[in-house]
Computed example of a mutant assay.
Amino acid sequence: MTAPPLLELTNISKHYRVRENSANPFAKPKTLRANDGVNIAIERAETFALVGESGSGKSTLGRVALRLLEPTSGSVTFHGSDVTGASASELRAMRREMQVVFQDPLGSLNPRMRIGDIIGEPLRVHEGVRGTELADRVAELMTSVGLDPGRASARPRALSGGQRQRVGIARAISLHPKLILADEAVSALDVSVQAQIANLLVELRERLGLTYLFIGHGLPVVRQVSQRVGVMYMGRIVETGDIREVFEHPAHPYTRALIAASPTPDPTQRRERIILRGEPPSPLDLPSGCSFRTRCPIAKPVCASERPPSVSVGASRSAECFFPLESQAPR
């Protein structure tokens, strides 16, 4: 019998009522659809990545998944339990197994605390660990993420950006979670350090059986750490599937453009240049039908009148597009 997904998001929407002109108190509020009918299932011990331009709704979706934000509609199931309907006490118990690694490694750490105290705080609070046992557990965690335990007395500002992110990772794994939300966890780091942290995340997943929801926009790192990927555009996942299949044979025209715009480490590799027409639409005034149609090179009249369904493209992929296979043809 196949095990159910560790994390499942079903028809998740997160809407906000905002005024387009905040200076005018009499302006009629509009609906901002940060997430709009999103479905994701993440298996145990896999890394599922969310990619897309800034403002696509990736981080909002990650926070809804952990119920750091309340969804407008839809449901979240984690390890067989309903997250959206959980009581406060049930949610506290779940969050021991759902941890976050944030984008800004300095801003997410208390500058007044020493590194050892930051890493050991969850152990003190949740497990009552003290004294020599706590020091030993902290030293073990520091070693496991590539930090010298001798730096336990240092404060965050004494460390490099990569070292601070290792502190955040050590803290996140201290309670042996099942799921880690890595929200742009490497985007604030130098390119060489990004690769090191990405390698660490992969190694910890393999050694500890972790599951990641990895949010990022640097496609080389996303490909390095992930097994599957969901491509977001204006609050919806427009393509999802096996990382290699999606990157090598994108089915959605937006995915194709996103990959074409990504830098490649090989200067001899020739990559097709795709220029999207126009600007992204306002999230307060999305076009009818397919929200990508105003920029899409293969848009047809049906794209303006109907929202495209999610269709299977091979065994391991799906795309929200009326003409997904056409996006793979050279133009």
Rank of each mutant, 00 (worst) to 15 (best):
I274D: 04
A182I: 03
I275W: 10
F247H: 02
R96N: 08
P177W: 09
A45L: 07
H126E: 11
T255Y: 03
R295A: 08
D266G: 08
L106P: 00
L159I: 04
R67I: 07
L200N: 10
A299G: 14
A257D: 02
L66S: 08
L276W: 11
N35P: 04
F26K: 08
G278N: 11
H126F: 14
D266F: 11
L200K: 09
V193S: 04
M142Y: 12
L200D: 09
P308S: 05
G162M: 06
S59M: 13
V129A: 12
A88Y: 07
F214Q: 03
S327A: 15
G150F: 07
L258W: 05
G74P: 09
G162V: 10
L9Q: 01
V202R: 14
R155G: 10
P281N: 14
S54Y: 11
V100E: 01
T2N: 13
M113D: 11
R228N: 12
A49H: 04
H217I: 05
L175H: 04
D136C: 00
Q328V: 02
G57M: 06
R95W: 12
E184L: 13
V221S: 02
A315Q: 13
V51L: 06
G235D: 03
R137T: 04
V129H: 04
E53I: 08
S153V: 03
L134Q: 04
T264S: 15
N35H: 06
E203T: 15
A251T: 01
A34G: 08
R244Y: 10
V191P: 11
V238G: 02
M1C: 08
F214D: 00
G57E: 02
I42E: 02
L123A: 08
S144M: 13
I243D: 01
A315R: 12
R63I: 04
S291R: 15
D266V: 10
L325R: 14
R137M: 04
I243F: 02
D242R: 14
L6P: 00
N199Y: 12
A45H: 13
A251L: 04
S327P: 03
P220M: 09
D148G: 08
L200I: 12
R317H: 14
P156R: 01
T10E: 13
R244V: 14
G120V: 11
A188T: 08
V125Y: 11
A172G: 07
S108H: 09
R256H: 13
G168L: 03
S22I: 13
Q103G: 10
R112L: 14
P263R: 10
N35S: 09
N11C: 00
A34C: 09
V311H: 05
P263F: 13
S144V: 02
I237H: 01
R92G: 06
L179H: 03
S144G: 01
A170D: 04
V186C: 05
G314T: 06
I243C: 04
E279K: 13
G168S: 14
A34F: 01
T268S: 15
A135Y: 00
L50P: 02
G162E: 07
S89I: 09
F322L: 07
